[in-house]
Design a protein around this nucleic acid. Sequence first.
RNA 1: GCGGGUGUGGCGGAAUUGGUAGACGCGUCAGACUUAGGAUCUGAUUUCGCAAGGAGUGGGGGUUCAAGUCCCUUCACCCGCACCA
Length: 799
Amino acid sequence: MEERYNFKAIEKKWQEIWDDEKVYKVEIDKNKEKFYALVEFPYPSGAGLHVGHPRSYTALDVIARKKRMQGFNVLYPMGFDAFGLPAENYAIKTGVHPAVSTKANIENFTRQLKSIGFSFDWDRCINTCDPEYYKWTQWMFIKFFEKGLAYKDKIAINWCPSCKVGLANEEVINGHCERCGAEVVRKDKEQWMIAITKYADRLIKDLDDLDFIDRVKSQQINWIGRSEGAELDFEFGDDKLTVFTTRPDTAFGVTYMVLAPEHEFVQKYMGKFENQNEVRAYVEETAKKSDLQRTMSDEKTGVELRGIKAKNPYNGQMIPVFISDYVLTGYGTGAIMAVPAHDQRDYDFAKVFNLPIVQVLDGGDISEKAWEEDGKHINSGFLDGLNKDEAMRKAIDYAVEHGFGRAKVNFKLRDWVFSRQRYWGEPIPMVYCEKCGWQPIPESELPLTLPEVPDYHPNDEGESPLSKAGDWLNTTCPKCGGKARRETDTMPNWAGSSWYFLRYCDPHNDKEFASKEALDYWMNVDWYNGGMEHTTLHLLYSRFWHKFLYDCGYVPMPEPYKKRTSHGMILAENGEKMSKSRGNVINPDDIIDAYGADAFRLYEMFMGPFDQTAMWSDESLMGVYRFVGKVFGLFKKVYKNTKPSEKDLRAMHKCILEVSERIEQMRFNTAVSSLMTYVNYLSSLDKIAPELYENLLKLMSPFTPHLAEEMWARLGHDTFIVAETWPKGDAKLAEENTVTLAVQICGKMRGTIELAKDASREDAEKAALNLENVKKQLEGKEIKKVIVVPNKIVNIVAA
RNA sequence: GCGGGUGUGGCGGAAUUGGUAGACGCGUCAGACUUAGGAUCUGAUUUCGCAAGGAGUGGGGGUUCAAGUCCCUUCACCCGCACCA
């Protein structure tokens, strides 16, 4: 009876040995070059690991293992982003404390991750809800406060009436709450804000030097939304009404102005409006609308502010002023100058209200629609005859000279709403004193741990469950010693993950978040792989957070990640998203149980291009499962005294070169196919030289570490294959000495010829013309030209 | 509307600088071993055609001796943002 590969016993055996011997533990070693590979740490949900997680984890595990074999000192850590809503919702439903359920979930995740055989250094495992960890998250918040970047502000926030929680813009999807799907409304609330907008420019500029995939860069740039233009002051009552425009060159075409209904001048001048009631009604109406309703309607609405006009500083014209909800309060100055001839939105509005449309750039047909392209200026006084770019410069110069304007850059990015009315998050380490205002608690009192509360519901005012924490709330002011009250909001989910990669460098340090030595050695992260969904959330926040720490002198470089790549999603077999409600979730435990961790890892890498969406297929999984068995089966053909032939070496070196290169480029699916091709070749041999099989095992060890380790041991080695040296491919030995050239007539394939490598053009031509089929095809034709590309092709042009 | 991406067999997908389209895997078909196992091995498998030969990488056009690859144009789908002045 032939032995079958017993993956269950073998995988378990090696996992235990690796664990016991701490094979993947790393320490600072200044004699070795370091390599820091990072994957996004999971939220430990009750559902356990999803098959999507291991796609990213395996990919970087492959890279980390290869780098390790290439002599790098590799840091490949894992941890848990453990604060979050599901644990809290679970607590509300069952009364189980979030700390308890979270701990159980982390244990389950750890078991699952270990069962896949990742080469994480488990001694560095971190957990964001551990007070020893969030102590430093709180410490960093205080630094933000001390530098004036954390501030409390009453703003209209995105409020989810179902979760009773304020959301960041990033958490609102099409006007709905990202978590529960309820429609988000606007609500004025005092919130802690962090001034990420102060870093907007640097967050764009510094992307230049980073090796991030393009879609990440462009998505971040798009999200930050930088636009250059000018601020212009229009006379309005006793005030200056300032607008932001990217087209100051069109100022002579301004025929009206529009304020956001929330603009301060609306209330300030209310008494002067002839149609106060109408104005008031419109303001109230828009306040009631959700963002979604506001953006959904295509029709422009608005009300003229009768009784008051604005003066265009360029031509002195008096123009009407409107309020309309198509002007947003949060962007620019909340007011615009309207140029209906050259802006489609203004054009639509002007049509509804019968406002004049004055063309100031030549081109298009403005009886149809606005002309938004370039052209020569007309009707524009001193700008006449100029094109857009020149006119823009001149218009700004003119405004500066006459003191009514200035060049200005604006961003779509808003400051980060940092308060959550939730229990299961980091307490914000601030107290409020009637006399001294908001004060941070002293560093010596960190961590400020979460108190026990009677229940986890927010109250109807939308206040955090911490508002029910009794005595915990009352404290003294660190400044004056008087009575003070603690902040009851907690930090958002994104706080702990904004700096976790720093903690991995020195996870047990209780004096600092990480020592300078550790940061100097391990940072930057050399390669960070994660999901596209975090591009404008975690990835942007953590870049900002890191830049702030850099400015304070706490980290040695301005950017945290050198390289960022992203994996595609894994969908169910039918192309749908995997979800509990659809019942199509694949549980990694089941796969590992049935096919083993190695087959699972290999399949995750083989299923398709790494950066693209892939569909799960049990049938395809069978293919790699068979492959694992095949590699195991080859072992019995390995004979100690066999010498490899030239052809054998050619196949081996070709495989080494391909696999090495393809791993580096994250073309894992083709790296695996190279291994398969090589294994097919080895299968065709009667006897396999040890060298051939050993190198196969080394090349496979990043993908299937258990199998590789087992067979390595069976070959008689007493070392770990994961600590062996990565094989070097020799391009010369991989080369064929004969090549097959295609022979074409007028670009159509008519046959092939076998020639020595680098055979001369003449020989190639002669051999091609000698082919029977070629002779036949050329009958009665005249050869016009013969094109020979050495080692590739012979093309005969004939008529 | 703006930004990014993808279109290749029955399916997942391969194809340096333009140079034999369909590697590798799945599935299917045939055979072998055996006999009942979703096992293993061998062979075939883009399509039309008995063959010679033709067609073929979403559609249309172009450049070239030669185009999946370069250029123009068009369609479909996916992701992100979205009244951002």
